[in-house]
């Protein structure tokens, strides 16, 4: 199944993000081997050179380390992975706020919406749990 890619941004940048998510979520755990460029390119249905470019960026950021002639492993530096995770969370939050402001909400309204949403979700989860009981 080809990866879902947007049409308006460079492909390598989108692939880079998807690989970062996989590392941060532990799909590729710290210290583990990554699939080969060719396999991942086939999985994503993208050009191998594009995949290679995304890998090079990952190496530059330090999240991925190349073992000469053997392949690539995820860094064992869990702090670095946590930092990457935090950075992605900040980006997501910023874009959420930007979108909500475009809809005309003030920051305090957004926060109260978020609070009521988390309450609703918690209640819904409780409801599911009590139903199961």
């Amino acid at each position: 199944m080809a990866w879902e890619l947007n049409s308006d941004r460079p492909i390598y940048a989108q692939i880079l993000e998807k690989l970062q998510v996989r590392i941060v979520c532990g799909v590729y755990p710290p210290g583990e081997w990554l699939p080969s460029v060719r396999d991942l390119a086939a999985e994503a249905s993208v050009n191998p050179n594009t995949m290679q470019r995304a890998f090079s960026e990952l190496e530059r950021s330090g999240l991925v380390i190349t073992q000469r002639n053997m392949g690539r492993v995820v860094t064992q530096d869990t702090q670095m992975i946590e930092a990457a995770k935090h950075k992605m969370a900040v980006t997501q939050t910023e874009s959420f706020f930007t979108n909500m402001r475009q809809l005309g909400f003030s920051d305090s309204e957004i926060v109260s919406l978020v609070n009521s949403h988390t309450n609703d979700t918690n209640n819904a989860n409780h409801a599911v749990v009590s139903n199961e009981r």
Partner: peptide, 13 residues
């Protein structure tokens, strides 16, 4: 392809 996408902010298509 990525030069078009980053300079034009749109797909090649």
């Amino acid at each position: 392809v990525d030069a078009i996408r980053s300079q034009q902010n749109k797909s090649v298509d």
